[in-house]
Design a protein around this nucleic acid. Structure first.
Lengths: 146, 146
DNA sequence: TAATATTACTTGCATATTGCAAGTAATATA
DNA sequence: TATATTACTTGCAATATGCAAGTAATATTA
């Protein structure tokens, strides 16, 4: 269930309604980890540079699952581990992520730094970057999701 | 100055650093108002459907100005009024806004509703939507900014 | 010109969210 | 059998949000 003050209770604007889901400091970082960094487990996401705290991470994973943006399966070889991954709605956020990254690369030059090859593809061959990212996700899925 | 817990203090990731600026429930709605709805004054943004409160709006306008994403001028014919507008970094967020809107239109079908013509251009002629939006902003600027 | 209205805010306070540290339960490993 | 991992939960202080009310500088109306 959504929250009392969710924008979607007052507005049908796509940006407003999307912000009920992605409009906070952490949600898109969880998506980023699942989409670009090969992280698929709770402990992996905890280890990201930004230092998300355990309760926030648990909450966001729960919210994203309940919204159908991510899903999870038990690790095939270890019952204590759990694998999270993006569903199609989650994967479709790649276009949002990419545009945020391009904007930040252009306008937050003092603070942002992207590895040269990654940046080159992002800026000069955005389509290829998207394709490549999707291919990597598919590869992973073929290994871990039936 | 940024806040103590800003992601950019811990990470150089473009998404993380961007979230220090746009990662909350209200900032992108202020951008939306300035970008797509022809709102340029404090009172206009207060009147948007989502019901932003006066202190939050004042705070976000201040933050966005200090980051150079928006700017303001006194109303040419009325000293009590003030006109806010997007700078180039602010305008460049159009690609982020458009992708969020496209994603929400596709995946939040129960809650999102976009006027038919607007939606048609957004989905089927995204480039034209961007061009048109920029043209409208330029028109406004020619009238109100020197 | 005096009284009312607009506009762009600020202030105070209750409530909600976040950040941090510590704890727990179910396995897995040594 | 003892220690580690993993994925969480809990409690509490600090911060941010939501809401109502107030303020100061013009502008408009009677």
């Amino acid at each position: 269930m959504g929250k009392k003050n969710d924008h979607c209770n007052y507005s049908q604007c796509p940006v407003a309604c999307a912000l009920d889901i992605i409009g906070d400091r952490w949600t898109l970082l969880v998506i980023r980890d699942l989409m670009f960094t090969g992280r698929h487990e709770y402990k992996d996401m905890l280890s990201s540079d930004e230092g998300i705290s355990t309760n926030i991470l648990a909450d966001r994973l729960k919210q994203l699952q309940s919204r159908g943006i991510i899903a999870s399966v038990p690790h095939p070889e270890n019952k204590t581990r759990k694998l999270y991954y993006l569903t199609q709605p989650g994967k479709d956020l790649i276009h949002v992520m990419i545009q945020i990254a391009i904007w930040a690369d252009k306008h937050l030059t003092g603070v942002v730094s992207i590895p040269t090859d990654t940046r080159d593809m992002l800026i000069n061959n955005t389509g290829a970057k998207i394709q490549y990212t999707m291919q990597e996700l598919e590869k992973w899925e073929k290994e871990f999701i039936v």
